[in-house]
Amino acid sequence: MGFCTMAKIVIRNLVHGPATRRYPAVPQRACPITRGHVTLDPAQCISCGLCMRRCPAQAIQVDKAEKVWEIDRFRCIACDACVEACPVKCLTMETTYIAPVTEQTVERHAITYVKPEKKKKPETGQAEG
């Protein structure tokens, strides 16, 4: 009984070819909400630092004075907390995983956002409130 069932499965698998794919030559399976890695749009970031405070792994560092946004990919757990927290939606969760690396480096992004002249309220206050 069990033998016949197994034989059927084996033959079917032989005909159908491999169930795996040759990653990374073939891209990974992804769906629109796959949590791959976080990217920043430096033109929109208001350096409020909310992502830094919400990050459970403390992977993100935001330097307000220097206007630098840093992420340590080795610490990042792709939990989506920063993306949810961002008040101006400048963070995006991409669906692809980062390529494997052998050395830990911190990714630095210079924030290019320029505060519009018209606004009277400081953006950082809005973000924290």
């Binding site: 009984m1 069990g2 033998f3 069932t5 197994m6 059927k8 499965i9």
Partner: peptide, 12 residues
């Protein structure tokens, strides 16, 4: 099918 193999296969 999987259960059938696990529970009824003589070698298992």
């Amino acid at each position: 099918d999987l259960t059938d193999v696990f529970l009824n296969d003589e070698s298992v």
